[in-house]
């Protein structure tokens, strides 16, 4: 496995010097995100996110299985973040790199442990049958900011996904295909998103959404995960540099604005996609379905 390509000394020095003069190489302001493109596939639960030159695709899939014996009332939700050499030849199949472990841990905390997904809603018969939901995160093009991009793709895919409808008679479960019954959206309790801050020059300079070159020069990173109501789900910091508490507080303020903006974009794309799919009044049925699903889960 070849090692990750390193930045030349000249490039490192130049990037830092430019930052000291308040300039980013791609002309963005320090707290600007790169251009976000979000599109959905023909199937439910496929989200393709491009953040600048970074491209991440998330696909949600579901199958019916038995719940874990110690969690009889919960469905199963797993996030898989296996990197492939597509994103970089330094990623080898079956041997996770540091970046991969980090991404999977941060997503785990951001989405699973923040209870964004109501796993109880995936249970069909307690202790016997439940849905196992799986999110596959595919990194297609890697130019930094993987955590932010993967999180946007994951949340968008979860919001877009529809699981097949089921009916229960005693212990007999019938799973209806998409053609038989309109599938059901997942019940998401909130929509957490990540914003990464990178620190330079002894912590004096903070950037939002650093690209790969900037990431390679940065001294510390802080990931703030929160939803659009400003509820912080996670603050993760790595890299050796100490960060001031006040600076962290400022991070959450900046992150809130970014999260609200991102959330709006996802919402807008979802609505556009729903319109595209709405052929001949199917929407009416769907919204009835929505009302029922929402009524079942208060909040």
């Amino acid at each position: 496995m070849p090692r990750e390509a390193e930045l030349s000394l000249n490039a490192r020095e130049f990037i830092l010097q430019a930052l000291r003069e308040n300039v980013r190489l791609d002309g963005r302001a320090f707290d600007d995100l790169r251009e976000l493109q979000l599109s959905f596939g023909d199937e439910y639960g496929v989200a393709d996110v491009r953040l600048g030159k970074t491209r991440v695709l998330v696909r949600i899939s579901v199958e019916v299985t038995t719940p874990f014996p110690d969690r009889k009332f919960d469905g199963i939700f797993t996030i898989s973040t296996e990197f492939s050499p597509m994103a970089s030849p330094a990623f080898e199949v079956g041997r996770p790199t540091e970046a991969e472990t980090l991404l999977s841990r941060l997503l785990e905390k951001a989405i699973r442990r923040s209870s964004a997904l109501d796993t109880e809603g995936l249970c069909i018969i307690a202790g016997l049958k439940c849905f196992a939901l799986r999110a596959d995160v595919h990194v297609l093009d890697h130019d930094g900011g993987l955590v932010d991009a993967a999180c946007i793709a994951l949340v968008a895919a979860l919001r877009h996904f529809r699981r097949p409808d089921v009916s229960v008679e005693g212990e007999k479960v019938t799973v209806y295909s998409i053609r038989e019954r309109e599938p059901v959206p997942l019940s998401l309790l909130h929509h957490p998103l990540c914003v990464t801050f990178s620190y330079f020059n002894g912590g004096e300079i903070a950037l939002v959404d650093a690209n790969l070159a900037e990431e390679q020069v940065s001294e510390a990173e802080v990931v703030v995960t929160m939803n659009r109501h400003g509820e912080v789900c996670q603050v993760a910091k790595y890299g050796g540099l100490p960060i001031d508490a006040l600076a962290l507080l400022n991070c959450t303020n900046v992150a809130l604005a970014k999260v609200q903006m991102l959330d709006k974009v996802i919402q807008q794309r979802l609505e556009e996609d729903a319109k595209r799919r709405d052929k001949g009044g199917l929407m009416a049925e769907l919204s009835a379905e929505n009302a029922r699903a929402n009524a079942a889960i208060p909040g």
Partner: peptide, 24 residues
């Protein structure tokens, strides 16, 4: 690109194909 020692072939290129399914 650079090949790992164990896969190196003296007079031709080693070819590695990775097929990754949509799910799983």
């Amino acid at each position: 690109i650079e090949v790992q020692r164990r896969d190196e072939i003296p007079d031709e290129a080693a070819i590695e194909v990775n097929v990754r399914p949509a799910t799983g």
